[in-house]
């Protein structure tokens, strides 16, 4: 029963990636990264629940807890940055910021 969960997790991850690449709204892009986290959480828990040797462990869930913590930090910092950027340019378009390049 491992594989269906892993496949669902992979699809969630890939959808999040596609969203991150294609959507221009900074907030939606952030939502997409959270979506990728969800895929990974599902995977981690599934690997712990259905290990190859048949003995379940909870390390995957512990990892997931840390992942949630990181996601919370990322959301806090990322949204603060989004607010700052929005204040500067009155837009949420990721394409409005192109400073990191060789002129």
């Amino acid at each position: 029963m491992l594989l269906p969960y892993v496949l669902v997790g992979a699809i969630l991850f890939v959808l999040g990636m596609i969203g991150f690449i294609t959507r221009r709204n900074l907030i939606v892009m952030f939502l997409c990264t959270e979506m990728m986290f969800q895929g990974i959480i599902v995977n981690l828990v599934a690997f712990g629940r259905y290990p190859l040797n048949g003995v379940p462990t909870f390390d995957g869930q512990v990892f997931a807890v840390f992942l949630i913590a990181v996601a919370a930090v990322e959301a806090a910092l990322g949204l603060a940055l989004v607010v700052l950027l929005y204040r500067n340019k009155e837009t949420l378009d990721a394409g409005a910021w192109k400073l990191l390049k060789d002129e």
């Binding site: 294609t22 990721a94 910021w97 060789d102």
Partner: peptide, 17 residues
Amino acid sequence: LHFMQRGALQGYALTMA
């Protein structure tokens, strides 16, 4: 290669993917 460096966040993400 520096022509590829356009400063667009999503361009980088796409290239990486």
